[in-house]
């Protein structure tokens, strides 16, 4: 008698097999984009100490179309990453009062979107002259 049949192991493109696996992979990869942006930001901070002319040079770099595209990408990645994590909060931190469980949408709004909006508003308020 032959041993049980073992299906071939998953290849490097395993995440293409199912839609939710792919969405998971995108969520994970967005963190790489955010990490790259943070490296860029650190470089910026390091350079900032170099004086006004360095800052001018950096401003020029920032307004370059490639840089603009990179920032847009990083922003999109950050939004996607945040949203995809907010949407899991009902599973990770369900809110219960007695036997009543808060509906998932409400949990997600309370633990995710609402603080996000409030903090964003505060940041805008603080950043605007």
């Amino acid at each position: 008698m032959n041993p049980p049949y073992t299906p071939p192991p998953a290849g490097p493109a395993w995440f293409l097999q199912r839609k939710n696996w792919l969405l998971f992979m995108i969520r994970e990869l967005t963190s790489a984009v955010i990490a790259l942006y943070l490296v860029f930001f650190l470089v910026f901070l390091a350079r900032f100490g170099g004086g006004a002319w360095v800052f001018e040079e950096f401003l020029a770099l920032l307004t370059h179309p490639l840089s603009m595209a990179g920032h847009a990408l990083a922003f999109a990645a950050a939004v996607w990453h945040s949203v995809s994590w907010f949407n899991t909060s009902a599973q990770v931190m369900p809110i219960r009062i007695g036997t009543w469980r808060m509906p998932g949408v409400a949990t997600i709004i309370i633990t995710g979107y609402a603080p996000w909006l409030i903090i964003s508003a505060l940041v805008f308020w603080a950043a605007l002259p």
Partner: peptide
């Protein structure tokens, strides 16, 4: 667990294993 979450999607009995694991 890397929290793909698919276990809870395919579960026919709403056990939510993904939620259990994150907790």
């Amino acid at each position: 667990c890397t929290f793909v979450g698919e276990c809870s999607v395919v579960c026919p009995k709403h056990v939510d294993p993904a939620g259990a694991i994150q907790k």
